[in-house]
Design a protein around this nucleic acid. Sequence first.
DNA 1: TATGAATGAGCTTTCATTCAT
DNA 2: CATGAATGAAAGCTCATTCAT
Lengths: 214, 214, 214, 214
Amino acid sequence: MHPPQDNKPRWERRKDARPQELLAAALDQFVERGYAATRLEDVAKRAGVSKGTLYLYFTNKEELFKAVVRGTIVEVIGEAEQDAADFAGHSADLMRELLLRWWNQCCATPLAGITKLMFAEGNNFPELAHFYNEEVVARGTGVIRSVLVRGIARGEFRAVDPDVMTPVLVAPVMMLLMWTQSYMPACEMPPVDPHAYLDLFITTSLAGLAVPAP
Amino acid sequence: MHPPQDNKPRWERRKDARPQELLAAALDQFVERGYAATRLEDVAKRAGVSKGTLYLYFTNKEELFKAVVRGTIVEVIGEAEQDAADFAGHSADLMRELLLRWWNQCCATPLAGITKLMFAEGNNFPELAHFYNEEVVARGTGVIRSVLVRGIARGEFRAVDPDVMTPVLVAPVMMLLMWTQSYMPACEMPPVDPHAYLDLFITTSLAGLAVPAP
Amino acid sequence: MHPPQDNKPRWERRKDARPQELLAAALDQFVERGYAATRLEDVAKRAGVSKGTLYLYFTNKEELFKAVVRGTIVEVIGEAEQDAADFAGHSADLMRELLLRWWNQCCATPLAGITKLMFAEGNNFPELAHFYNEEVVARGTGVIRSVLVRGIARGEFRAVDPDVMTPVLVAPVMMLLMWTQSYMPACEMPPVDPHAYLDLFITTSLAGLAVPAP
Amino acid sequence: MHPPQDNKPRWERRKDARPQELLAAALDQFVERGYAATRLEDVAKRAGVSKGTLYLYFTNKEELFKAVVRGTIVEVIGEAEQDAADFAGHSADLMRELLLRWWNQCCATPLAGITKLMFAEGNNFPELAHFYNEEVVARGTGVIRSVLVRGIARGEFRAVDPDVMTPVLVAPVMMLLMWTQSYMPACEMPPVDPHAYLDLFITTSLAGLAVPAP
DNA sequence: TATGAATGAGCTTTCATTCAT
DNA sequence: CATGAATGAAAGCTCATTCAT
């Protein structure tokens, strides 16, 4: 009968949606062009607004980028942290769940472009690199590490050193991401089936973590 | 008779060496900053010449970059092609030789930065991407493929499909390269030993290619 | 009957007071930042309204500034003109009264900032300078001049040339104003006592204007 | 016979003169428009060069302004410091000399516009205000103060407190400057004859500083 | 009346490229 | 060959002004 039960006038609904539209446009451009090469005017154009409008919502280019990361990757990490904290089952199941989700939400989507971008341009923008390390790398690896600790504490994993084991789990996913992002459009090299690779990698790793039978 | 002995006066040798100095400086900057962020003024400064001088030797930034690639990676590929053509022994030995050389000459040196750069910025510079695909990717994988074909023809390898097998051999080296190039600050990477990894990978692959005993 | 007693509901009184609030906020900002550097957004914020509201009351920045001047300095000048016209006593008393009032109402208050502002930025905004000269400078010196004429006509002042004498009376007050407005950081100004200075200046000047005893 | 004994090619002479041309153009614009309202494009245009050229010689607008001040006012102050140190005669003569020179070199010339500018806009550009206080205000008043100290030490001045006396000498000159700069083009108020005023002020002040006869 | 989102001209700054010497 | 001064087309950011609600 009536439109979505949003009582606000269309105009105000637009206002609320605006930041999301801008962030979506910015994500597109950042992923497509990289950080430095993205022109704010293009972001605005893609969002259907003028250059100045961007500045109503974001202080500057850097803050726009941070907002994009916060609204996407950091969000996903937050959920992962929460779910990891709430999880009741076996740590191996939790680990598999987390790694797969990481892949599905961050690597098999446009978000992967952000990771690639930081890899490529982080050096040129130290403030951005710092932010990304704090909000994404540190927290992301933190979740994996915490599951290792949990598993060891509960006797579900062997007593490996979590600081050594964490990157062993993280690295292959990162590499797969880079690979599938393909470093050039025309270079159709990747022969790897990501899901097969991931599945094999996870299964193998978790088997390696399993407590040996007495 | 005797090895190249330069009879020219020093300043003239300097003149001839000029392009090499420029290319070396350019390589440094491209690897350090990336393509877009490299300023020609910095390249000139590092080479100890003026900005204008660069344009005496290279039409523009793009041609400078291409020249860097031609003078380094393409050179190495050319030698590999030649050596592969000249090689008389067992194809497995040749393959091992080529993969190791690739690593030692292109991946364990600053040249690896070029690969990373193309991965990161190739999308923004289509003309560059095209050039790189033609001159590096295509020819590089071509050598590997040709050795596969040779091995199969000579009955030294199993009759695998070369088009499928080539990337299987290329991908792990690329991954290792990206891994070791990954210097995202604070993101501690696991302590992979490149040579151990490479050796294991090559040995395993060649064993897999070996013709099964009848 | 009785003094102005406002029968309107409070919100409506608020409505009527709005322009005054806006002018007060604008005065604050203009004095604090100067004309060019004052952002209308800040004026609005200080007045607790939206930027757009400003434009309901004032056509543009320039008109806002004019309104500030009209509502303050011009107002004071108008009263001075009126009082001078109504005054019945000795012209020396009137002159003292006017000069002191000028100081107390325009120079020892935030309004002095407007004078400083016109001094500093008038050149950049010819239309503003023109307005200020017409409405403030011309009328202000006009009052002084008219009192001189009156005093001479009534035989209370010596027959000086009013066009020469007027700036002689105006300049010292202006100087004192600039002096006290001088707030260039760290540039310690001498501790002039404005009232002592003014009193001495006025007394001396009026003595000089007195008709010499026959 | 031959042009000025500058052996450099015309082109190079131009290069040497360039900074001075830019500074002159910048001085003009800063004095005419103020700091904030001066557009670098206009400075360039007035100097007959392009916008970018300015940046070959000056890091940014702020440094351009500082360079203008250094090349003019600070220069004059340096000479004053030197002359004061070298002077052998009576301190009263030195003081008169310095105050007159200050007027003739800094106040009766376009340089006065810089002082006016700092007075007007210093608040909006703290970094500039800081620089100006360090390089101009502090050093300028320092010279005056040092002469006071010298005179007292040599028994040529009464034993006044130099920290109190310095601004008493500085302030009237500053005020005269502001006055003669006239705060608006159309406002032809100043009736003061600067030289008469100055002369009277200096003579009076120095008389006041004279050691009373025993 | 009042709002505040939206606009776009304008300013500072950067850098690949040109060219007179 | 070599120089380096000069150019000018962007790009990031600001703010007076407009207008749909």
